[in-house]
Design a protein around this nucleic acid. Structure first.
Length: 478
RNA sequence: GGUCCCUUCGUCUAUCGGUUAGGACACGAGAUUUUCAAUCUUGGAAGACGGGUUCGACUCCCGUAGGGACCGCCA
């Protein structure tokens, strides 16, 4: 793979989303790859908003994309560039092409075009635009209408895209028709704008989805017509849903903010995404420094990957366990309102925060998402609605053991009210009555949490404190 | 339909002509255990198919099948 440009100039990559919606998972990965490569090489990572189609772009979408990138920690160099703002420059290049005879004005109406397309389809014939205006004398142009500007694409030969991911991909020029570069209102079309901007921004590496592969051929022709250096192209495979079909909203084409709301850590999401289409031997976990150090373009795969939420969850669980308690709590508090946790408040009180922190070591191994952490701590936030299993467990026998325990707890106080002492006490009670620990612990769990499943009960009792615990126990016995 | 791309355990992937085809997730079993997890041990699980090339193919070539992308005055 030859990369003549990269060896000479400092690397410049870019992420160029169209602001028609949120930042989805595929876009996030594309951004990640570009960011990683720029950071790996010490080059620049630029951001450009492809908003030339004024009918389709929304300011909200721009914000969503920027927020998503920020949350992921993908910082860009310089200000984001609005492609729309460069309209005059795009038109200028189009007119250069026009003047050089490498483009021409075409007065074919949209209606004529659709009709021709329909006819080709009916005859099961491949359709390529063949404009009669390509060779017609401009002097014969119809008065009153401005027409579009089409690129005069070469008729014979081939256009080669030397792709760092896809390899050498050859397109026959006869398959590539004369694409519109300027609309009849004079505004630029994507393929022109991209080439002009990438050139002007000195972009050296264009990493994007394979859905742009044919565009790369057309863009290559424009580069050549302008006599500009073609950047290194790298077209990465797409991400599919778990069923192998195109990613739809149902299976993961959610906005990045949806993943944040579900309680995924940005570090985990990046780690998961980088492994979709890229590998480094048998390694699975990449601390950010390693990700940057090891990321390269030659280890990118060509086949599409499926979204696997189980693995994402596992990766997230890993990063949850790695993150220090206080930092994790801070991250939870940032997204708490989005988490939709069962019985959690919108924000923590000081004492709840302290309780969360104390319980964190026991919460972490039990959770795959931040949402699950908060759910695991439900006993802190709320009274405990008794669930079915809990109610069933709380029979006469269980209540008897509860009473026994309450009596022995009564002589304790906030001074020695800790998990260790509590467990010792209950073990003692169990031994004295010839019971296993579980026989006495489960009723305690149900009485205090309302459920049969919770973080370690003695730790929970410690965190809740003497008064609250005794209150709950007594309420259950009565 | 045309053009282009893809195909190793269920999933993500390693292998870059010679391996008992490795790892991770998921799944099964066991250990541990106050519940649930976590943790440890452990098991099953793959080169789409058919032809070549070669002393030797998962690796190279051709074909078939299946999948995908693109074919706008969208990006």
């Amino acid at each position: 793979m030859s990369t003549p440009i990269s060896s000479a100039k400092p690397v410049v990559t870019r992420f160029a989303p169209s602001p028609t919606g949120y930042l989805h998972i595929g876009g996030a990965r594309t951004a990640l790859f570009n960011w990683l490569y720029a950071r790996h090489t010490g080059g620049k990572f630029l951001l450009r908003i492809e908003d030339t189609d004024r009918n389709r772009h929304t300011p909200e979408a721009v914000d969503a994309i920027l927020d998503g990138l920020k949350w992921l920690g993908l910082d860009w160099d310089g200000e984001p560039l609005s492609q729309f703002s460069r309209g005059t420059r795009h038109a200028e290049v189009a007119h250069e092409l026009l003047a050089a005879g490498k483009a021409y004005r075409c007065y074919l109406s949209p209606e004529e075009l659709t009709a021709a397309r329909a006819q080709a389809e009916a005859e099961k014939r491949p359709f390529t635009v063949q404009s009669p205006w390509r060779d017609r004398d401009p002097a014969t142009a119809p008065a009153g209408i401005s027409g579009v500007v089409r690129f005069r694409a070469p008729l014979d030969g081939e256009t080669v895209v030397d792709d760092i991911v896809q390899g050498r991909v050859v397109f026959q020029n006869k398959e590539l028709d004369d694409l519109v570069i300027l609309r009849s209102d004079g505004s630029p079309i994507y393929n022109l704008a991209v080439v002009v901007d990438d050139h002007d921004m000195a972009v050296t590496h264009v990493l994007r989805g394979v859905d742009h592969l044919t565009n790369a051929a057309r863009q290559t022709q424009i580069y050549q017509a302008m006599g500009w250096d073609v950047p290194v192209f790298g077209h990465v495979p797409l991400i599919h849903g778990a069923d192998g079909a195109k990613l739809s909203k149902r299976h993961g084409a959610l906005g990045i903010e949806a993943y944040r709301g579900m309680g995924y850590l940005p570090s985990a999401l990046k780690n998961y995404l980088v492994r979709l289409g890229w590998s480094h031997g048998d390694d699975e976990i990449f601390p950010l420094e390693k990700m940057i150090e090891w990321f390269d373009l030659t280890s990118l795969g060509k086949s599409a990957a499926r979204m696997d939420f189980k693995k994402l969850a596992d990766t997230n669980a890993h990063y949850i366990r790695e993150t220090p308690d206080a930092e994790l709590l801070a991250q939870i508090e940032v997204v708490l309102p989005e988490l939709g946790a069962d019985r959690a408040p919108a924000s923590f009180t000081a004492s709840q925060r302290a309780q969360m922190l104390a319980l964190m070591p026991d919460l972490k191994p039990r959770a795959q998402t931040l949402r699950e952490i908060v759910n695991g701590a439900a006993a802190i936030f709320a009274k405990r609605p008794l669930d079915e299993k809990g109610a069933k467990l709380l029979d006469v026998d269980a209540k008897a053991t509860l009473s026994m325990n309450v009596e022995s707890f009564a002589i304790m106080s906030n001074q020695n009210w800790d998990a260790q002492s509590l467990e010792a006490k209950v073990r003692e009670n169990a031994d004295n009555t010839g019971n296993k620990l579980g026989k006495l612990a489960q009723p305690l769990r149900v009485a205090i949490t309302g459920t049969t499943v919770s973080p370690p009960i003695f730790k929970l009792m410690e965190v809740l404190g003497f008064d609250e615990t005794m209150k709950r126990l007594k309420e259950t016995i009565d």
